[in-house]
Design a protein around this nucleic acid. Structure first.
Lengths: 334, 334
DNA sequence: CTGAAAGCGCTTACAG
DNA sequence: CTGAAAGCGCTTACAG
């Protein structure tokens, strides 16, 4: 038995006994179709196992109905909740999401944007630090997710207030009685703002800021190395605010290596409320940057921008909140 | 200044002073093009910022040059290395990858396959447990990555030998002197084979298998709960082989909660060699299932299948190897 | 609602 | 290599 060729819209029309135009209307959920005919078309689609061709629809309609999302690296899981919120907000509008990971693409020396431009994505979501090398077409709608060092002219920005979150986390440690609180920072706009929030809170309390910058990556590895350096230079540190949850995990490792009880002898706070922070092993006090809500707001910004390309860029800022778990307590004897 | 319309292949041809056909040849890297003309075309492309339309190329060429990869869940990071190996193997052949996450899609009640079928993907890679509800077209090339409970007729399978890996890990614990070794298992084909490998090794050593199945998920949570159950039912257990690294992380959490030193009082072995296992905090002894190599073999199977759709299905099995880190040692006093 | 027509931006095959 | 032609499977706009 030879494989039949894939069914086209003509086959569906013939099977349903309607015109090709009517099938197209049903596919795009037009209201001006009688229930009976709609039913006939849907049955024909089911029977023929028909799937409309993206390529043809995109080419003919002049619109791919796809939004490109650029993320940093699959390993840093903050994007998962962002995608969930984004997908929820876009699927009702019939828009789909394509994800591109910069780390993976760097490997094969291909610009993730090239693929998206060939796909003719309707808009771009940047959930990563933009770089000069990203040549974004002037008329491309862009929403930046998260705080970034580089500004994209005309782009909307949706982020939680990293300065306020870091301030809140630092004040939590201060209120527990800590005075020697170190901070682990990294590269990028979010790190910068978190650092500023930490410094503001320390200054307001009349305390010295102890900032360690172990590198631009904000990973378990840099968190580990940064904590080693912090505890070597300032041995009487009693608390650490890490730049994100991955760095906090490294801090916990360094503490264990020095036989420092957490939180008895060293308190540790993360940032992002990633799945990692919620594990039984970490039970990490962290700042929830509301990633799923950021995704929802990104979707809203996207839809309104698509509806009105000329509207002024907006900047949405969400208020983060501290999640207290088991890695923070009053300072012990040290 | 109004935005110019996107450049098309006609614009490139005109700018380069060549025919449209020649531009198409350059785009598809044909060898029958003189260097001078190729250069002229590439300059025109650069100057016009031209990006060929996927949709048009796919429709006209009758081929999307895209492979669809279905993964379980972004949170389980074993897929990252798989994608890397896969991408390396496919990019030279001009094939790109589209990834779909089942967990995310379940959320909006859309079958990930539907999207891929509309995209007219050339082939499917299943890096997840297949289900009956996946209606895969009969003529679609499929490669299954990893050991799965359900067989797909005609599909190639690339996996590491989970039975051998689990056996190796168990023998490692036996050779350290452990006799009471528990195993944490979950759902799916990989879990099943790992369990069998563990049971074989225990039987061969004349020991009783202690298997705990805390649920079908293989997460930190089930690892934690499974270890609680194991240590309650068999309090003198001295070692645990977890179904994967996430479960091992949960085991470490449960051990800490009971004040059991790892590895002094309890040895723990993971599986997958995920990024998690390599962290300073875990330093987990684990089995490397060679995910990047699996990705490379999947790519090879895909290319040969595309070249010869009629060839017999193959089954590639890689030999995993144990990575010893800091969570295993000889049993202590208990 | 139908039906005929044009067109989206490419690839393919072919005569020259 | 060029150039003219057909066609991929849809959407769109329109006359009826």
């Amino acid at each position: 038995m030879t494989e039949p060729k894939r069914a086209t819209i003509y086959d569906v029309a013939r099977t349903a006994g309607v015109s090709k135009s009517l099938v197209s209307l049903v596919l795009r959920n037009s209201p001006n179709v009688s229930p009976a005919r709609r039913q006939a078309v849907l049955e024909a689609i089911e029977q023929l196992n028909y799937r409309p061709s993206h390529a043809a629809a995109s080419l003919a309609g002049g619109s791919s109905r796809t939004v490109g999302v650029v993320i940093d690296d699959y390993t840093n899981l903050w994007f998962v909740e962002l995608l969930r919120g984004l997908q929820d907000g876009l699927s009702a509008a019939g828009l789909r999401i394509a994800v591109s990971d910069r780390t993976l693409n760097a490997h094969i020396a291909s610009d993730p944007l090239d693929g998206f431009l060939s796909t003719r994505v309707e808009a771009l979501v940047l959930a990563t630090e933009p770089t000069e090398s990203m040549r974004i077409p002037a008329n491309m709608p862009v929403v930046v997710a998260g705080n970034r060092a580089m500004k994209i002219p005309g782009a909307d920005v949706v982020a939680s207030d990293d300065r306020a979150g870091a301030r809140q986390a630092t004040e939590h440690l201060l209120s527990l009685g800590h005075r020697r609180i170190g901070h682990l920072t990294g590269g990028g706009g979010a790190s910068q703002q978190r650092r500023e929030g930490y410094e503001q809170a320390m200054r307001a309390a009349g305390l010295e800021a102890l900032v360690i910058a172990p590198g631009s990556a904000t990973t378990e590895e840099t968190g580990y190395r940064g904590t080693q350096e912090l505890l070597t230079r300032f041995p009487n540190t009693t608390a650490i605010l890490a730049g994100n949850d991955s760095m906090a995990m490294g801090a916990l490792a360094a503490a264990r290596e020095r036989d420092l009880q957490v939180p008895g002898e060293l308190s540790v706070v993360g940032y992002d409320a990633s799945p990692l922070a919620a594990t039984h092993l970490l039970q990490l006090t962290t700042v929830d940057s509301l990633n799923s809500e950021i995704g929802a707001e990104v979707a809203a910004a996207l839809l309104s921008r698509l509806a009105d390309p000329a509207r002024e860029p907006v900047s949405v800022r969400l208020a983060p909140r501290l999640i207290q778990r088991r890695t923070t307590a009053a300072p012990g004897r040290r």
